[in-house]
């Protein structure tokens, strides 16, 4: 599927901001099931851009605007060709014992531990055990966790914030894709399944039927030894197929957030974000 995404973030400052430095993770990486054919990041006020690759192999662009300004626009356009990771069916049949093989792999074990927003606390562990039941299938367990969250949590915006942890969401069960993802990560990791946070876009071909399609979206990828990473979207109860565009991944939102910055200033700030994804 050839998809074009347009993602625009605008900050309006009531008092001029200074020393505004930002990290942007909006560049779709090349993966075996996604190739980027075009990408462009425009920042206003015009300023030089630089980039580096972070620990999680995300392409990070950063910039700083020193002089006072009352508006900041970050405008990213990308065109990608996506393939369906599940074209050959679901990767069922991998037993939990297989996870032993990644004990030594630091790049995987990183995603089995607590992180800033993902906490494996006892209540979450207990809930994960209940979902897993007698199953010895890694993929099907992860999938069941996702479905469990879809069934037991409500998708409501305005209740949680970017700083809400998995524990807080576990308690009140109202939140958005970021919260669904964090809690699913916590439950997967509680079961020792390597699971990472992925930020990206979702193309809603039926318009309005999917959650998070007109926003910056997030989902979970679990690592299946010998098969690699597979995406599951607990917010929509869907496997992550060719309707999804990956932008960045990490232990949680903190590692993968699309736009992260700080500035000096006082007064209030308004943020407007628009995301659109279309098929070409």
């Amino acid at each position: 599927m050839k998809l074009r995404a347009h993602h625009r973030t605008e900050y309006l400052y009531s008092q001029p901001a200074r020393s505004n430095s930002n990290e942007i993770r909006l560049q779709p990486p090349h993966t075996p099931w996604q190739s980027r054919s075009f990408w462009l990041l425009k920042v206003l006020p015009a300023t030089p851009l630089r980039h580096y690759v972070d620990l999680h192999r995300n392409g990070v662009h950063h910039f700083e605007i020193g002089e006072p300004h009352s508006r900041l626009v970050i405008d990213a356009t990308s065109t990608v060709i996506t393939l369906n990771r599940y074209a050959d069916g679901e990767p069922a049949g991998i037993p939990f014992s297989a996870l032993e093989t990644c004990r030594e792999d630091a790049e995987v074990t990183l995603y089995q531990k607590d992180s800033r927003y993902v906490r494996i606390d006892p209540a979450i562990w207990r809930a994960a055990i209940d979902v897993k039941g007698e199953s010895d299938d890694v993929y099907l367990t992860a999938k069941a966790i996702g479905e469990h969250l879809y069934d037991t949590c409500r998708y409501v915006s305005g209740i949680t914030t970017v700083n809400t942890t998995s524990t807080e969401f576990f308690q009140n069960r109202h939140g958005v894709c970021q919260d669904f993802t964090h809690l699913m990560l916590a439950m997967c990791r509680a079961m020792d399944i390597p699971a990472r946070y992925v930020s990206g876009y979702l193309y809603d071909h039926r318009r309005g039927s999917l959650r998070g399609a007109h926003q910056s979206h997030a989902w979970v990828e679990v690592h299946l030894p010998g098969h690699g990473w597979f995406g599951l979207d607990p917010t929509n109860r869907r496997p992550v197929d060719d309707h999804y565009v990956t932008l960045a991944s990490g232990r949680d939102y903190d590692d993968a957030s699309p736009v992260k910055g700080s500035f000096m200033g006082s007064g209030s700030r308004v943020m407007n974000v628009t995301v659109s994804v279309e098929e070409l």
């Binding site: 425009k42 006020p45 015009a46 300023t47 030089p48 356009t77």
Partner: peptide, 21 residues
Amino acid sequence: LVQRITALNLFLYDVYHERKI
């Protein structure tokens, strides 16, 4: 062309504002 025109527009903004470049 998208890349080029985007850069030209940023350049013009810059030239008529901070002149960073």
